[in-house]
Computed example of a mutant assay.
Amino acid sequence: MTKFLLSVHVLAAIIAIGPVTVAASMFPAFTRRVAAASADGHPLAVLRTLHRICRVYAAVGIVVPVFGFATAISLGVLGDTWLIISIGLTAAAAGVLALMVLPDQGKILAGLTATSPPAAPARPVITQLAMYTGTFNMLWATVTVLMIIRPGSTTGA
């Protein structure tokens, strides 16, 4: 059962968190291109798609910690320091995504769709979103490294 739980946990992380990381990273850069875009609406459609990917896969990503907890219980490592730190970092990453990245993306999209032709968002707003996205990505990268290294592990990894 542990192998099944771990497999679902890892697959969910790859399938759910990967797209959020990529789409969130692309959003600020693509937002900068909107200012130079033609009136064909294509860049705005791309931004909407990136935002939707972030929202949908963030919701699907809830499976990752659920199966992570189940795996940790099955392995008997729920009290290990590396796992507690990983849980905290995962919660922080989820908070950054839910409270900073997604709302800022939504604000940018709302501002762009409120005017015709779309008015480019202010550079500080895009820079702030890029910073939040980078923070989200670094938190997830740190969790990934902790999951692989597992300090104190007896497996030799």
Rank of each mutant, 00 (worst) to 15 (best):
Met1Gly: 04
Met1Asn: 01
Phe4Tyr: 13
Leu5His: 11
Ser7Ile: 02
Val8Tyr: 09
His9Met: 02
His9Ile: 04
Leu11Gly: 07
Ala12Pro: 02
Ala13Leu: 06
Ile14Phe: 07
Ile14Gln: 01
Ile15Lys: 05
Ala16Val: 07
Ala16Trp: 10
Ala16Ser: 12
Ile17Gln: 02
Gly18Trp: 01
Pro19Thr: 05
Thr21Asn: 15
Val22Gly: 05
Ser25Ile: 02
Ser25Glu: 08
Met26Ala: 12
Phe27Glu: 00
Thr31Val: 13
Thr31Gln: 05
Arg32Phe: 03
Arg33Gly: 01
Val34Trp: 10
Ala35Thr: 13
Ala36Cys: 06
Ala36Glu: 04
Asp40His: 13
Gly41Glu: 05
Gly41Pro: 03
Gly41Lys: 15
Gly41Cys: 08
Pro43Arg: 14
Leu44Phe: 09
Leu44Tyr: 09
Ala45Gly: 11
Val46Glu: 03
Val46Met: 06
Leu47Pro: 00
Arg48Leu: 13
Arg48Lys: 08
Thr49Tyr: 12
Leu50Gln: 07
His51Pro: 04
Arg52Asn: 07
Ile53Met: 04
Arg55Ile: 07
Val56Leu: 10
Tyr57Lys: 08
Tyr57Ile: 02
Ala59Val: 15
Ala59Asp: 12
Val60Ala: 13
Val60Ile: 14
Gly61Val: 13
Pro65Glu: 03
Val66Ala: 12
Val66Gln: 09
Phe69Ala: 06
Ala70Gln: 06
Ala72Tyr: 03
Ser74Lys: 04
Val77Arg: 12
Val77Gly: 07
Gly79Glu: 04
Gly79Leu: 02
Gly79Met: 03
Asp80Glu: 13
Leu83Arg: 05
Ile84Phe: 10
Ile84Trp: 10
Ile87Leu: 06
Ile87Glu: 00
Ile87Phe: 12
Ile87Arg: 01
Gly88Thr: 12
Thr90Gln: 05
Thr90Pro: 02
Ala91Lys: 09
Ala92Asn: 09
Ala92Arg: 09
Ala93Gly: 06
Ala93Asn: 09
Ala93Ile: 01
Gly95Gln: 05
Gly95Cys: 00
Leu97Tyr: 14
Leu102Trp: 13
Leu102Pro: 08
Pro103Cys: 08
Asp104His: 08
Gln105Trp: 12
Gly106Asn: 09
Gly106Cys: 11
Gly106Pro: 01
Ile108Arg: 00
Gly111Leu: 11
Gly111Thr: 11
Gly111Gln: 12
Gly111Ile: 13
Ala114Gln: 11
Thr115Glu: 14
Pro117Met: 09
Ala119Gly: 12
Ala119Val: 15
Ala120Met: 12
Ala122Gly: 00
Ala122Leu: 03
Ala122Val: 01
Arg123Asp: 14
Pro124Arg: 12
Pro124Asn: 13
Val125Arg: 02
Val125Cys: 08
Val125Tyr: 04
Ala130Asn: 08
Ala130Gln: 04
Ala130Ser: 10
Met131Thr: 13
Met131Lys: 06
Tyr132Phe: 15
Tyr132Arg: 00
Tyr132Ser: 03
Gly134Asp: 02
Thr135Val: 14
Thr135Trp: 14
Thr135Lys: 02
Phe136His: 11
Phe136Gln: 07
Phe136Cys: 03
Met138Arg: 15
Met138Ser: 15
Trp140Gly: 03
Trp140Cys: 02
Thr142Arg: 05
Thr142Trp: 15
Val143Ser: 07
Val143Pro: 01
Val143Gln: 11
Thr144Phe: 03
Thr144Met: 01
Leu146Thr: 09
Leu146Val: 06
Met147Thr: 14
Ile149Pro: 01
Pro151Ala: 11
Ser153Ala: 10
Ser153Arg: 09
Thr154Gly: 13
Thr154Val: 10
Thr155Phe: 11
Thr155His: 03
